[in-house]
């Protein structure tokens, strides 16, 4: 079971737009909400209202600052969950066969009844996508909401992963990345979608769309600047008197 399939019929996955993500963490909350009460063991919290709260999450949003050699720094919000890698090291290291990659859609799942909670799959994952649930003693990971995407009890509009359905900015896209004509594949081609840590050879299915370059508004201000009235360096009139009067008060000027 823990041998990887040679190929999968489809490569279902996420495309995350780093240009659009506003870092609201709504995907984190909706993921936890859906997955704690559906597929598999609940996502437990330890000491949730105490001094040192922590818990199991399948999706976490980091924020990074990128400082180019020239120009302003940019803040980039960075959602991270399982990338459903084609060459998933977490599957082959599993000693029990609990960790597997599905042939039909490429989703990487954990059979929680067979998981011994050794943690080796989490050790082998470069992305921190797997977390051992402390209450259940089994490994939890993103299921790509396998219990939503094929669920005919849900309205069709809801048959996408919870994080995608929730994102208010439209920064998350779901589809078949193995089909070059799918919307997500076109998006990846158009925007130069990238892999995380490609040097590790995991061949992630999920892609990240890089932030678009910022426009150069500063030069336009330079063109208009001579037309604007200069700002007074020294206060005049009433403000000038107030400034001097306040300087004379005890306590010193600063």
């Amino acid at each position: 079971m823990t041998e990887l399939p040679n190929s999968t019929d489809r490569k279902m996955g996420l495309v995350i737009d780093l240009d659009t993500c506003v870092g609201c963490h709504a995907c984190v909350i909706s993921c936890k909400g859906w997955n704690t009460e559906n597929y598999g063991a609940p996502l437990s919290d330890q000491n949730p209202y105490g001094g040192d709260p922590s818990g199991t999450f399948l999706n976490r949003v980091h924020s990074y600052e990128v400082q180019p050699e020239q120009g302003h720094a940019q803040l980039i919000h960075f959602p991270k969950s399982c990338l459903h890698c084609e060459d998933a090291p977490c599957v082959t290291v599993c000693p029990t066969g609990a960790s597997y990659k599905r042939v039909e859609d490429g989703i990487v799942l954990v059979n929680e009844d067979h998981c011994i909670g050794c943690g080796l799959c989490a050790w082998s994952c470069p992305y921190g996508a797997r977390e051992l649930d402390l209450a259940e003693g089994v490994m939890k990971k993103c299921t790509l909401c396998v219990d939503r995407i094929y669920n005919e009890n849900l309205p069709e509009v809801d048959r996408i992963p919870s994080c995608v359905r929730t994102c208010p900015a439209g920064a998350r896209h779901f589809g078949d990345l193995g089909d070059p004509d799918s919307d997500v594949s076109k998006l990846v081609a158009e925007r130069g979608g990238m892999d995380l840590m490609p040097e590790l050879g995991t061949k992630p299915v999920n892609k990240y769309l890089p932030p678009r370059p910022k426009d150069t508004i500063e030069e336009e201000i330079d063109i208009l600047a001579p037309l604007l009235a200069p700002v007074a360096e020294e206060p005049q009139g009433f403000m000038g008197w107030l400034d001097k009067a306040l300087d004379k008060l005890p306590g010193g000027a600063n």
Binding site: V28, E65, P68, P210
Partner: peptide
């Protein structure tokens, strides 16, 4: 994947607390 755009620095972690 942002390394070719400039120096990347972790600005804010996903949670204030620790995790697994």
């Amino acid at each position: 994947g942002l390394g070719d755009r400039g120096a990347v620095r972790a600005f804010e972690p996903p949670h204030t607390g620790s995790n697994y």
